[in-house]
């Protein structure tokens, strides 16, 4: 297991901070990649931030009304070692399934 911290990203050119409107996940929650994490408001708009990856939320920084600066920690995940990299997903290990059956008369000539 490894801990990964996700800082508040730059949500638009020139923005330096955002105000948390509502956390959509809580500490201890298991989240999937792209699942909405938090709604924040900037001087331009209110937006939902999608999760950059799957994992367990171990810490959220700030609560409704808190102001977070761009680049400051927003949320910390715990991720298992078999978590995919930045690109792609870990292939599921499925039991091999088949529809084709083999039939042959095997002569030994």
């Amino acid at each position: 297991m490894a801990e990964l911290s996700f800082p508040l990203p730059d949500l638009g050119e020139g923005l330096i901070e955002a105000t948390i409107l509502e956390w959509l996940v809580a500490e201890g929650d298991q989240v999937e990649r792209n699942q909405p994490l938090v709604e924040v408001e900037t001087t331009k708009s209110a937006v939902e931030l999608p999760s950059p990856q799957a994992g367990t939320v171990v810490k959220v920084h700030g609560e409704a009304g808190s102001v977070i600066a761009v680049g400051d920690p927003l949320i910390v995940f715990e991720v298992p070692d078999d978590t995919a990299g930045i690109v792609g997903t870990v292939p599921a290990e499925k039991a091999p399934a088949r529809r084709v059956r083999l039939s042959a008369v095997l002569d030994d000539d």
Binding site: V100, A104, L106
Partner: peptide
């Protein structure tokens, strides 16, 4: 996939 490989095997066996 598994079925395509099995088909290939079957073609050789036949």
């Amino acid at each position: 996939n598994i079925d395509r490989i099995l088909f290939g095997i079957q073609r050789v066996l036949e």
